[in-house]
Design a protein around this nucleic acid. Sequence first.
DNA 1: CGCCATAACTTTCCAACGGTAAGTTTTTTC
DNA 2: GAAAAAACTTACCGTTGGAAAGTTATGGCG
Lengths: 214, 214
Amino acid sequence: MTVTAKVKGRHHHGALRRALLDAVAEIVIEEGPEAVTLRECARRAGVSHAAAAPHFGDKRGLLTAFATEGETRLAEAMLAALGALPGGSAPEARLAATGRGYIVFARSWPAHFRLKCRANLIDRTNRDWCEAAERPFALLSEALVAAAPDHDARARRARLTLAWASVHGFSALRAEGSGSDLWRPEERATVVEEDLLALIISACTSPAPTRQTE
Amino acid sequence: MTVTAKVKGRHHHGALRRALLDAVAEIVIEEGPEAVTLRECARRAGVSHAAAAPHFGDKRGLLTAFATEGETRLAEAMLAALGALPGGSAPEARLAATGRGYIVFARSWPAHFRLKCRANLIDRTNRDWCEAAERPFALLSEALVAAAPDHDARARRARLTLAWASVHGFSALRAEGSGSDLWRPEERATVVEEDLLALIISACTSPAPTRQTE
DNA sequence: CGCCATAACTTTCCAACGGTAAGTTTTTTC
DNA sequence: GAAAAAACTTACCGTTGGAAAGTTATGGCG
């Protein structure tokens, strides 16, 4: 099952990069992130196993490029969810939209999401990756500040943690097929998602208790 | 660095099982779950790479046994957190304790926790694993029902999802070193944990909106 | 004590993996 | 059309997981 039909005897002309990344996604879907091998990716792209090196360096480079693509798509999904709101939506609705974007990303691009969770397969010192990975968190952070502007640093930290952790944790459990059958059958998925988002938004915008110390 | 000192020329007498599991933990800590190899485990236990087969079958069997141990320890941590409460504590406090137990487990046994998140490295049809993995979820579920007895099925599902996902997601992000520096430095850890738990409990015990349909 | 059945390993072998180096083909550039 | 550069292939190395076959230690029994 070849990702990109290869004209016999012809080089890929830069399309190999895309073909290899698509092969990564295929393998992650079919057999999980641990099953990704350079040789299998190359086979699916119709090239020898050493052909990836000029494009990605080594296996870690390939996976890091894949993860970078994932972060970009995550940011796009969050922006798309924000854009789908009616104009002049409340800050709470915008906060929910960022979470919805994250969940939709994880559901739409399961391979990218699952690889994103394998921190030690990725080179987190890679510049492109770092840049791409900053965006999603920044979007959430901005939306949270806008939705709950009165929180002090500690309350904000707790709510940021809750929002990020719950949306990520939900997606992670679902992507790995864990978490009992809370969110099955499939038809129930969006209901569970929206109920979860509503609870998160409610908690994130709840007033902070008054405290003496930070 | 040998996990268990091996008397030269002597067999392990059943202690090899323990030694191999400890080696798995060591390697996960030092180099991540993907770096675990049968041969390296065997080296650290002072045996040949084929010595694990009689005990665990194959690599997957070893990792499944390790994950089973993890589930057991998770349940123990949750029970310990419940036991640490003053007698007659409120159901809300008991719900928080189950979450605290989960978080403490992930912090205390990072190797077990990280492997737990690699669903496709584990044989989830294994009987021992299935039994061990049921307990923790049951404990949370019971605590939630006790703390919010009036919820309908849908509200319960949403709150169960929130509780499990947020506590798991928080632990996962921290274990993988992700999540920006929300929960660093180290001293801040328990503060963040307790603030997070307070938010979760508040959300989980909030009244359900009245609805027409399920 | 001596013997043996069995459990607990070791050794050997294999295909597949990631990575490097060197060679070959294709494409671009002038 | 030739030279240079890019895009690969081939060959090789050390390592991995697993199977098969051989070896050694241990416990039970007379």
